[in-house]
Amino acid sequence: MKKFLKKLFLILFLVIMIFILIFHKRLLLCYGIAEKYISLQKNISSTKNLDIRVASNSMDYKNVVYKNTNGVPLTLDIYGPSKNIYKSSPVIVYVHGGSWAYGDKTIPDALSPVLDTFRSEGYTIISTSYELMRNKENFNKQICDVKDTIRWIYKNQSTYNLDTNEIGVLGVSSGAHLSLMAGYSNDKDFTDDPDLTAYSSKVKYLIDFSGPTDLGLLNTSNLNADLSRIFSSITNKSEIIDKFNPINYINSNTPKTLIIHSKADSIVPYKSSEELYSKCNESGVKAQLISLDSSAHDLSDISSDDIISMSKGLLSFIVLNSPL
């Protein structure tokens, strides 16, 4: 009996120690993110406008060509882990916004604290580009580009020491729309580069910042000249809406999804995120909706309360989906 109790005590002790080690890592991760966001919050409170662009001077690989189709070389930037904690590194892919026609892969200032902290915890951040729309609609190609970025990660996992079982995708605005389409569609759908077709495009989770999940809700009546030409090129509106609405692709195998959207968004209706969240729940998909109260669509003039809500949600979601 004494031997049994000793063995039981030893097992319990080991379990408790393992739990403490895991929990301790997550506590340190949470603390690191909170510390960086407190610093960011102080900077925001001292200026009227938040510059959402930040210099990319700490990346390990810049402008890596991941494919070249349509005569347009597409590139990605790799921000490797600042600490080698894992045998192979978990990956967070960043997909920029810009109304499908503008923008680049520079990491926004509002997101850099959380991404920098995850780098210090062994993550690799990959910021990708996609072929911007010029004069006509080209959703299909852009979705292919995001999926081919993921396929490129699978193809090059050993070269860059990447863990393809731990890929998350974070998209902003139109980049969120493309990310959701890439993550929700079938593995072999939306192919472009023949050299990447054989590779998987599966991801573990998705983070949607103010993404248009129902194109039918977008107000296209007051667009600038560039966007007017693009949307005027659409002759089969109902077909385009049906084919390129992420909400239409949700099923029981859809990756876990975090949705972050401001109720004050005047560009993409908050209703689209409510619909996405409801559809995920109806389909048995694990989803979370974080509602911001006063931030603009591009996260400019973001309030202190919204920073707290956003950072807390990002922190808990990624940490709970991490291999820690």
Rank of each mutant, 00 (worst) to 15 (best):
E35Y: 10
E35I: 06
K36H: 00
Y37L: 02
Y37D: 02
I38P: 01
I38C: 10
S39K: 11
S45H: 09
S46N: 15
S46G: 15
T47Q: 14
N49Q: 13
N49T: 15
N49S: 14
D51S: 11
D51G: 10
I52W: 01
R53A: 11
V54S: 13
A55Y: 13
S56I: 11
S58R: 08
N63S: 11
N63T: 07
N63P: 10
V64K: 00
V65N: 10
Y66K: 00
K67C: 08
K67H: 13
N68G: 05
N70K: 07
G71D: 10
V72H: 05
V72C: 03
P73H: 01
P73K: 00
P73E: 04
P73M: 02
L76S: 01
L76W: 00
D77A: 02
D77I: 03
I78K: 00
P81H: 07
P81A: 10
K83R: 11
K83A: 13
I85E: 08
Y86Q: 08
K87G: 11
S88M: 14
S89W: 03
S89D: 14
P90D: 12
V91G: 01
V93T: 05
V93C: 05
V95E: 04
V95Q: 03
G98L: 03
G98I: 06
W100S: 06
A101W: 03
G103Y: 03
K105D: 13
T106G: 09
I107H: 01
P108S: 05
D109V: 08
L111K: 00
S112E: 13
P113Q: 06
P113E: 04
V114H: 00
V114T: 07
L115C: 04
L115N: 01
L115W: 01
D116Y: 05
D116A: 08
F118Q: 02
R119G: 04
S120Q: 14
G122H: 07
G122W: 08
T124W: 01
T124H: 00
T124I: 05
T124E: 09
T124D: 08
I125Q: 01
I126E: 05
I126T: 04
T128W: 01
S129Y: 02
S129A: 07
E131N: 07
E131Q: 12
L132C: 06
L132W: 03
N135W: 09
N135V: 11
E137L: 10
E137D: 11
N138R: 06
F139I: 12
N140Q: 14
K141E: 15
K141C: 15
Q142E: 14
I143R: 03
C144W: 04
C144T: 12
V146I: 15
V146S: 04
V146W: 01
I150L: 08
R151P: 09
R151L: 09
Y154I: 09
K155E: 15
K155D: 14
N156Q: 11
N156H: 12
Q157F: 06
N161K: 12
N161M: 14
D163K: 07
D163R: 08
T164V: 15
T164E: 09
E166P: 00
G168M: 13
